[in-house]
Design a protein around this nucleic acid. Structure first.
Lengths: 272, 272
DNA sequence: ACCGTCGTTCCGTAAAGCGGAACGCACTGT
DNA sequence: ACAGTGCGTTCCGCTTTACGGAACGACGGT
């Protein structure tokens, strides 16, 4: 499970500061309850209550309500887990982006061309979410597929998107930088410099800044918005460092840029 | 969009009877709000309020709360759509079933063996939800991939699961039968007969009962529960009728049953 | 058989959300 | 250009609703 790759945390401490910046408190806490299941697969009322700092009865009611709504499911022993209705909603959410269907052919060709894993990422908040990933079939080493979500600052996808979106860039800078490896860039000034370089070059790189041994190159997928191209997603190639940043780098850069440009054009064409 | 394949409905009528059988009314209505987006991609406060029969102000607050939680996203013009956090949760939900990862290899082999589209389906409520689908690469005719969810009564997957789960069978019978094609079985007595035959044979069929021209054969994936095998999912082969129910039927039946049995065994082995 | 823990239920209190109406804005048809 | 219509959002008082604490029943380990 993903828990293994996370830093150890006190499960019985109130980690959520109960961020209530909106009305409808019950809905906010209901979402917070869902969030608890992002880290742990199966939870009961007591753990949820402890984690959120709410009464056990409240947690119990929340769980029951979410379960009748199908967002959670009851396991055998009275505990709960994420429900399959969430899968349904999630599929609808990405299907309606009209992005995956358009990008999949280009991703397949790029994978065949480079024989590496190709990712399609979008931004949610200050994180990068990988909506699709096609892996080279006969690879003996596979990128750890547990990572569906990265902080944006340390990934090439996040950089290529932040380079074209000043609001995202400032959000990332305000959020702060977490060091994952000795190579992770955590200096704001250096980060700004990287974004400037990314803007000039039209692609971004990340050298072992999130997972030791793994690097990536990303190019933006854009949509015309107000006459100017605006990045909405990115294609990235992720592989062991020597295979993307070594002598193959020019080929990878050219390949991913062409593929991303093709997806951008197809997206524009599919815009009805 | 999926809307096109649905019967025409009055969008401005209150379709949801406001089923509040649970406490935490706000959470229930919040889930109902999410449900609205299952049928339509983009909605505003007014339409949601009309559809659920609630005040416009209430709908607006709900939408805002769900958006701050990431379950919804704002579009440019003040309307909302399903948020990508739902995709994240949905992926976690299926990943934790430990089902897709186990089934994917067998599905790939079955696809290569039969050169047809293979589906992995589970039951949610009285519907079948397809968690994974691998399509034969060089098929000129593709099954309409918009269908991620079917009513259980008209699909081979639903029958093979209902045959081994009396509770599901009665739920389907109580829910009632909708006719999609001239071939759809809508007689309860005939349906019971089909379930009995399914139990004997160990597989189920559906002959153009949901989509004209398309038929399917399904076999159950089981897990041992209380000493008895209990169906938890099903593999199905879907293709134009002549390709699954014609002279190839014995090969298809044998292939899908073997694959499902292998997944069941792997699932048992992976159970830690 | 005991005790600890968990999920669930009950109940009084107080806060939280509901509905109606008013506001600001964007678009449209004259 | 202008008014009209539709939208999403906000405000406010009243009522409902959900919160928290404690008690209950069940399960499982010792």
């Amino acid at each position: 499970m993903t828990v293994l790759s996370l830093p150890p945390l006190d499960l019985d401490a109130a980690v959520a500061p109960a961020e209530d910046d909106s009305p409808l408190r019950s809905v906010s806490t209901a979402v917070a309850v869902l969030d608890c299941f992002a880290e742990e697969a199966e939870l009961g009322a007591t753990r949820v209550a402890a984690r959120l700092g709410i009464a056990k009865s409240t947690a119990c009611r929340m769980l029951a309500a979410l379960a009748t709504g199908g967002l959670l499911e009851r396991t055998g022993s009275g505990r709960y887990r994420l429900g399959l209705r969430l899968f349904e909603y999630g599929q609808l959410a990405v299907d309606r982006l009209m992005l995956r269907d358009v990008a999949l052919p280009a991703m397949g060709e790029l994978r065949e061309l480079l024989r590496e894993t190709i990712q399609l990422g979008v931004v949610v908040g200050t994180d990068v979410l990988y909506v699709e990933r096609t892996e080279a079939a006969s690879m003996n080493v596979r990128f750890r597929s547990e990572h569906r979500r990265n902080p944006a600052h340390s990934s090439s996808t996040g950089r290529v998107l932040a380079a074209g979106d000043p609001a995202l860039a400032t959000a990332i800078l305000e959020r702060g930088f977490v060091r994952y490896t000795p190579f992770t860039v955590v200096d704001p000034q250096r980060y700004r410099q990287i974004l400037a370089t990314t803007r000039e070059q039209g692609y971004a790189t990340s050298r072992e800044e999130f997972e030791p041994g793994w690097s990536s190159i990303a190019a933006p997928i854009t949509m015309m918005r107000g006459g100017r191209p605006h990045p909405v997603a990115a294609l990235s190639v992720v592989a062991p460092t020597s295979r993307v940043l070594g002598h193959r780098k020019p080929a990878v850069v050219q390949g991913v840029r062409r593929a991303a440009a093709r997806v951008s054009a197809d997206l524009e064409r599919a815009r009805s």
